Computed example of a mutant assay.
Amino acid sequence: MNYDLLIDAGNTRIKWALAAPGAALGDWHAQGAHMHADAADLPPALAEAVSRLGCDPMGDTGSAVGAIGRVLIANVAGQAVRDMLAGWLAAPQLGISPQAIEWFASVPLRAGVRNAYRNPAQLGCDRFAAAIGAHALAPGKAIVVANCGTATTIDAITADGTFLGGMILPGLGLMASSLAKNTAQLPQIKPGKLPEGFANNTDDAILTGCLAAQAGAVERAFELHQAVECIISGGAAPYIAPAVPVPHRHVENIVMIGLHAVLRSA
């Protein structure tokens, strides 16, 4: 049995998942997430997951030969992270053929989604993957997908699968940290639950303002697109989603779901 390995290398974290053949979207056999500072923990975690697959007999190097048949990677973290991942995936204990590895890129058409960006290749591959994932989860619907990470991206996909474009704004953490860095007396806050009503202290006032900005951008995109549903994902989604006033659902790992949809469509 050949498993699919999906990797989403973002600006803050590297996430991975193993999917069995025929598995439903988002149904992972194993998964992990590692901050860039702790990226050295990824190879042993992945090697341990591969060793538990129980596929083909172990080779001379102790690798699960043929356990991983395809690898699809979305990397927006730069060349250094790409080189690091390439080195890790070449480890003998993983038993991955170099020909099995694909670096996902934005193209005019893939997995039922047409990329209508002015220059299709300029679209961030994570945004394209998220759009593919959202369309796969909500086929036949005009939808907005908001991926709330280091940056927040909010994109529109038509019912027939056309990626129209969208918005990019600082993520929730960046908004808060920019106030702390560029003002004399405002504190650095941590994301938290949306306060009720008007905030009566500075920390809650900052949090309320940042959450309102994020939720307002999602609402604006939803109304502009005349969408019927919004999919919200990313590390800050648990904080932002409750503030969003339009129909929505929280979906974890929308980029990897999109990568999974790509491989399922191949």
Rank of each mutant, 00 (worst) to 15 (best):
M58N: 10
P139N: 00
L72E: 04
V262D: 00
M175W: 11
L174F: 11
A205V: 06
F128G: 09
A24K: 13
A24M: 13
D83C: 09
G87K: 04
G173K: 04
I96T: 04
G26A: 06
S106Q: 03
Q214S: 09
K190W: 01
D83T: 14
G124I: 12
A131E: 05
C55T: 15
I68M: 03
N253C: 05
L42Q: 01
I231R: 12
I206S: 02
A130H: 02
A30T: 10
G258V: 02
A131Y: 02
N115M: 13
E252T: 09
D126H: 12
W28D: 11
W16H: 03
D160K: 04
A205G: 14
I168K: 06
Q226Y: 09
E102R: 14
A30D: 15
G66H: 02
F104T: 02
A176M: 15
V71D: 01
Q185D: 10
G26Q: 10
P170W: 14
I132D: 00
F163V: 01
P195V: 07
P139Y: 10
A151N: 00
P242L: 04
K193L: 11
V50P: 01
G26C: 10
L207I: 10
E102S: 12
G54Q: 05
A47N: 01
T153L: 03
W103H: 06
G235V: 06
A134G: 12
Y239M: 09
P191F: 09
S97I: 00
L186I: 12
A86H: 11
P57V: 02
V262A: 03
A138T: 05
N115W: 12
T61M: 10
